[in-house]
């Protein structure tokens, strides 16, 4: 490719990245204690809207960033996986709180030892629970990461379900591996 092409894509990447990083539609997967700090961060005092992330979408299909807030138990793990798989590319995951990073001090039969054993994670925010300042720091790190991403890559990602040029749907690596729990009768 000519240098002019490179220049064009990098400028386009910059522009898309800039737009994406300030319009984060988040899906708060709130389970536990960290939810209280998530609330504090989202409310007027700390106000994540300053970073363009003030608009939670409660449908995974409309969200860009999955906030996994709080402990994930083994009973809940398939649900988290389903929610992640339902999100469209490009998507990012924030592990909010130490339980989601490593399992924290819940080293026991019920708790998943870090959600990165189930889904990929972009940003880890440690703390039990992290303070709102800490969360905002994590969010800014995510913005940096989004900006640095090669934005157009997502279009050709084999995992991506959005239109590939040849019209073939990619197969996601996790597809078909999720067990669904039947609802109780």
């Amino acid at each position: 490719m000519s240098s002019a092409g490179n220049f064009f894509t990098s400028k386009l990447d910059d522009a898309i990245g800039w737009a994406r990083k300030f319009s984060i539609f988040q899906y708060p997967f709130v389970t536990a204690c960290c939810g209280m700090e998530y609330m504090s961060t989202a409310a007027a005092h700390y106000d994540v809207d300053r970073f363009g992330a003030g608009f939670p979408r409660f449908s995974p299909r409309q969200a860009d960033v999955l906030f996994v807030v709080g402990t994930i138990s083994h009973k809940l793990a398939p649900v988290l996986k389903t929610v992640y798989d339902q999100m469209c590319e490009p998507k990012w995951v924030i592990a909010f709180g130490v339980c989601t990073c490593t399992g924290g001090f819940y080293d026991n039969y019920a708790t998943v030892q870090g959600i990165d054993t189930i889904i990929p994670v972009d940003i880890y925010i440690p703390g039990c629970p992290p303070r709102p300042e800490n969360v905002i720091d994590g969010l800014m790190k995510l913005q940096e990461k989004i900006q640095k991403n090669e934005q157009s890559r997502a279009l050709y990602d084999p995992c991506s379900k959005i239109g590939r040029p040849d019209g073939i749907q990619g197969k996601c690596s996790t597809e078909g591996k999720i067990k669904h729990i039947e609802p109780a009768k």
């Binding site: 402990t71 819940y106 026991n108």
Partner: peptide, 10 residues
């Protein structure tokens, strides 16, 4: 039971 973290066992 989705947030069972085994408090009593711990």
């Amino acid at each position: 039971g989705y947030l069972h973290r085994a408090f009593e066992k711990m």
